[in-house]
Design a protein around this nucleic acid. Sequence first.
DNA 1: ACCACCCATAATGTCGACAATCTACAATCT
DNA 2: AGATTGTAGATTGTCGACATTATGGGTGGT
Lengths: 227, 227
Amino acid sequence: MPIERSTYKDHVVKYIYDGMRENRYKAGEKILESHLAKELGISRAPIREALADLVRSGLLEYKPQVGNFVTSLSSIDLIDSYIARGVLEGFAVAQGIDSFTEEELKQLEEMAHKMGTFARDGKHKALIDIGQEFHEKLFSHCTNGQVVLFTEQLSLKLHLLFYKHWARVYSPKEICDRHLELIDAVRKKDPVLLEQVIRSHYFDTGLKIVEQEKTNINTMKGITDDN
Amino acid sequence: MPIERSTYKDHVVKYIYDGMRENRYKAGEKILESHLAKELGISRAPIREALADLVRSGLLEYKPQVGNFVTSLSSIDLIDSYIARGVLEGFAVAQGIDSFTEEELKQLEEMAHKMGTFARDGKHKALIDIGQEFHEKLFSHCTNGQVVLFTEQLSLKLHLLFYKHWARVYSPKEICDRHLELIDAVRKKDPVLLEQVIRSHYFDTGLKIVEQEKTNINTMKGITDDN
DNA sequence: ACCACCCATAATGTCGACAATCTACAATCT
DNA sequence: AGATTGTAGATTGTCGACATTATGGGTGGT
């Protein structure tokens, strides 16, 4: 089943990305170039370029002369990434704090309430989508291209590796309240406070996901030794 | 003159990087794969990988079906990059603010004074080197791998594209004073103040470099129309 | 003289094959 | 038996050539 034409590399990137979303690649697993090449009916050259791209975005890790492996973030890496995102997004939103209109804030509030509702109704997909939209809107006033770039990079990585957790780490009420808190901080036009709120938002989320992962592992494999 | 063995890609990356440092590639210029291949006596495959790597670090820009071009940052991009670096480094240093020993602070002060001296004596190379070292030391207490990664990425890009300016945008006394100011902020153990100081440090630098570039262009080409 | 179209040229995108290197298993030695 | 070394298979790194696409100049028409 060969791919549509345009430039193979991008297709391959998307193919692997989707594969990771559908859990067809497990963390730490090795990705074989020749395997993909046969699977997609193309040569190894575009495959290699795609893999290099994914290494660049942090989704794969590369060992010279050995191969590419699906990134498995340690707890430390995970929390670091969430912290970094908090720092960047905090700055981004704070920088544009004055350009938010009351109408936008109302929209954001509405979205926060919707998120609570979706969470209560177990509509995880809708919850995740609107969560993404919420943060994009918050972020939309940032004019700093470099900050946007880094944040998108982090967002991509974290979204892919941990979007399954998002709906479970907070209770529906918590989800709604935490996002309303962000909006209030924007309303107060206090950049320092706002940055602090956003940073702790992401820091807490990172921590909770790590905790949940740990308990998951324990319940799945029985209580193993903690190396 | 083929290259030493180990893995060609890295050698090619270094080759192009050095070439940019020595101004052998002008901003906006197109990089031809085949030229490099002949120049280094190897095939195009590792060249392509190296170019893709440089695109990732922001040193080159890539247009599909067209080629790779030496990045030429607009004034906006340049300032954005300096701001982003200020945000990241500010957080990094603030995060480790409590782990600085008095001995380290003394070393940093000594370095700041040396920088002033080097600037006065016109030792630009030494000034740049010790400046790098200063910021590395400030940065060394940051345990967040993600933040370190982004900052190094920015540092690489900015260093390469603008290290020629560093020695000229501030007077010797300003150089020394501004860095002493940073150290004082660390001493005060006030993370918020520290972040603010570091941010404005980079913001000012970005602004000054942009200004200097503009006057350079005007004096070199005569007063041209401003498109 | 100017514009549109076509073609030659050259550069990138892709390919299949070979070379260098790593991994795993088996044979040998202590 | 355990450890070490050697070898075979598989995988990545590199190569040269072909296919496809952008670019520039020239030709013809208005």
